[in-house]
């Protein structure tokens, strides 16, 4: 009842949107597609929700083929498109009722599934959707996608443009839905959200960089990552680029992340080098790699 893709490719007018994508999502899994804008996430979602037909390869959702059995899939999946904004001129309640009716169900029938989420927006049920805050719109959209008790839920960038509090609440809701045995495929451009998924696929330029659990992905990172700080941040990066044993250097929050070609970097050696170049307030420390470090390393290749 999960999702499986085998060698899926799709081009638009010569532009390769996605190339040879294969992966499996297990039933009940919360699976994340992580990648920047233009990575091909939306194309992938549209193929799986039967809105596009792939140029080559096969895929199935909940055991049904996305081309042959598209009608079956349309009955049993929930979908929240990327720039989905509901009907702004309908109230919360009217939006929900509309989606319930077109899926041939009622609000009451599957109320247990959306109860948690709906209770948060119920006080505003007579308000027009256009007048809701971003976070509330997301909740309403999720309710609409769940109203027919789908087996598989597709959420295309649900947290884009949403503030941190609503983002956190949204992910909490996904965790609770997972307990109700719904398979969830979610995409996001934010690397920090990868850690919230069971497994993730990292994507860039239409290609898969890596598939694994977030934990394994960072464990596989081959190098020791040093975070380095100095008062003169811009100069620090320039100076590190000139360091003979440099492997990579990237700004990373208030520090820069540095990796060395060798495995036996001596911190004092680097510190002296930086001092000799006139940098002050130098800090060097070992740190854990993040999904972003991995992503950049994979994208470099």
């Amino acid at each position: 009842m999960g999702i499986s893709l085998d060698n899926i490719s799709k081009s638009y007018k010569g532009f390769k949107a996605i190339q040879n994508i294969s992966f499996e999502v297990k039933p009940g899994e919360l699976f994340g597609i992580i990648g920047p804008d233009g990575a091909g996430k939306t194309t992938l979602f549209r193929i799986l929700t039967t809105l596009l037909v792939a140029d080559s390869g096969t895929a199935s959702v909940a055991g049904m083929d996305v081309v042959k059995d598209y009608i079956g899939i349309r009955k049993s999946v929930g979908y929240m498109p990327g720039k989905f904004s509901l009907y702004q001129d309908l109230t919360v309640e009217e939006n929900l009722q509309f989606f319930a009716t077109i899926f041939g169900t009622t609000l009451e029938e599957n109320y247990d599934l959306i109860k948690d989420i709906y209770e948060q927006i119920e006080p505003f049920k007579t308000r027009r959707a256009g007048k809701l805050s971003g976070g509330m719109k997301q909740k309403l959209a999720l309710c609409c996608a769940l109203i027919h008790k789908p087996k598989v839920l597709f959420l295309d960038e649900p947290t884009t443009g949403v503030d941190p509090v609503s983002r956190k609440e949204f992910w909490d809701m996904l965790k609770r839905l997972q307990e109700k045995e719904i398979t969830i495929l979610v995409s996001t451009p934010y690397m920090d959200e990868a850690a919230l998924c069971d497994r993730v696929a990292l994507m860039q330029d239409g290609q898969l960089l890596e598939i694994d659990s977030p934990k394994h992905i960072v464990q596989k990172y081959p190098k020791a990552v040093y975070e380095i700080g100095a008062k003169e941040r811009h100069k620090l990066i320039q100076v590190l680029r000139d360091f003979p044993n440099l492997y990579s250097v990237y700004p990373f929050g208030e520090f820069v992340h540095y990796t060395d070609k060798r495995t036996d970097l001596e911190i004092p050696e680097l510190e002296n080098y930086l001092k000799s170049k006139g940098l002050s307030e130098i800090y060097i420390g070992l740190t854990e790699p993040t999904i972003e470090d991995v992503f950049m390393e994979l994208a470099r290749k």
Binding site: G35, P189, F295, A299, R300
Partner: peptide, 8 residues
């Protein structure tokens, strides 16, 4: 929305 390398 930009990729991590470009962002840096």
């Amino acid at each position: 929305g930009v990729d991590p390398i470009t962002r840096r």
